[in-house]
């Protein structure tokens, strides 16, 4: 066995030199050894037309693309709301049945139920236009990061837009940054579900926000991050609410010498960042909405001046 592996290693050496990626090396090894991944197996699967047994549905729009309807019904979905949504969205009703079948096959193979698979497609219809290899590659990238299939499946079912991310580096860098903040895989998945915009924001913004939360606001309880959408906010949004509370005297940075278990009396991150402006101003800060709006405008001006000042200092340094 060891000889065999050594042979394979030598034969794939040239390719490794070119790609210089560990992940591609593993893939090549698996191919040479005859161990196919889930993605490979799904990609190689032939799409088989199933016979559809359609049951009459009262409220279902008969004018919609009948093949698509029949196909969805063939998976045992009788929920009228879902069927109505499919009819309402032309991108779903007019798409090729083979595209539906392709995505459904992938999802069911990965362990999702048929109804969840359809719901996921309804959530993000652009999935139908992605190639099966791309979907599988993205899914495998997520699994590689998390080293868990269940968590990834749940996450993708809730945020199918993550399958459109093709860059492995993007996924890994954000995953690692989030893991560094919240320490557990489940919490990372929870954060990504609640604020998917993290995947599309710049990494420096995420760094800045996490630094601000840990160094200025001194948030010590990692569980608080996953319960709020704060990591999906921009630094300005985070700062404006924190500074407002700080100036109102409603947020005191906790003393690091005091145990975490002793309540600080500060509002939680969720209370600060997951509330409407009115709720935040009236309930959390104890002032009027007008005051918060005025403060926001003042802060925006200050932010602009800070930015210009930092730009000027940067140019001076150069």
């Amino acid at each position: 066995m060891s000889m065999l592996i050594r042979d394979i290693t030598f034969s794939t050496m040239n390719t490794l030199m070119k790609s210089s990626s560990l992940r591609s090396a593993f893939k090549l090894c698996r191919q040479n050894l005859g161990i196919s991944t889930v993605a490979d197996r799904v990609n190689s699967m032939q799409i088989v037309n199933r016979s559809t047994t359609v049951s009459p549905c009262s409220n279902f729009n008969e004018t919609a693309n009948s093949i698509t309807q029949n196909l969805i019904k063939s998976y045992g979905i009788k929920n009228e709301n879902i069927l109505q949504k499919v009819v309402d969205l032309p991108i779903l009703s007019n798409s090729d049945p083979s595209e539906w079948r392709k995505v459904m096959e992938i999802f069911t193979f990965r362990g999702s139920s048929a109804i969840v698979s359809v719901q996921t497609i309804v959530k993000y219809p652009a999935l139908l236009k992605l190639s099966s290899s791309r979907i599988n590659r993205a899914w495998d990238d997520w699994v590689d990061c998390f080293q868990e299939t269940e968590i990834v499946r749940e996450m993708i079912e809730k945020q199918p837009i993550f399958l459109s991310i093709s860059s492995t580096a993007d996924i890994r860098s954000r995953y690692e940054q989030l893991k560094h903040i919240v320490l557990s895989k489940k919490a990372v998945a929870q954060i990504l579900i609640t604020c998917p915009q993290i995947m599309f924001q710049s990494l420096t913004e995420l760094h800045n926000v996490s630094d601000y939360l840990s160094e200025v606001m001194i948030v010590r309880n990692a569980a608080e991050y996953s319960k709020s959408t704060v990591l999906g906010c921009s630094l300005q949004e985070v700062m404006v609410r924190h500074e407002f509370l700080d100036k109102c005297g409603k947020y005191k940075p906790p003393n690091l010498k005091i145990s975490e278990s002793i309540p600080t009396g500060n509002a939680t991150l969720s209370e600060i960042y997951d509330t409407t402006e009115e709720e935040f101003a009236c309930k959390v800060a104890g002032v009027t909405l007008e005051e918060f709006v005025v403060f926001q405008s003042m802060f925006a001006k200050e932010w602009e001046s800070r930015k210009t000042n930092s730009d000027e200092t940067d140019s001076d340094d150069e």
């Binding site: 407002f244 100036k247 109102c248 005297g249 409603k250 800060a285 104890g286 002032v287 009027t288 005051e291 403060f295 003042m298």
Partner: peptide, 14 residues
């Protein structure tokens, strides 16, 4: 009492 946060933030602003 309750109006102090409002006064405080105004004092700390321009």
């Amino acid at each position: 009492k309750d109006s102090w946060p409002s006064i405080r933030i105004a004092l700390l602003s321009e």
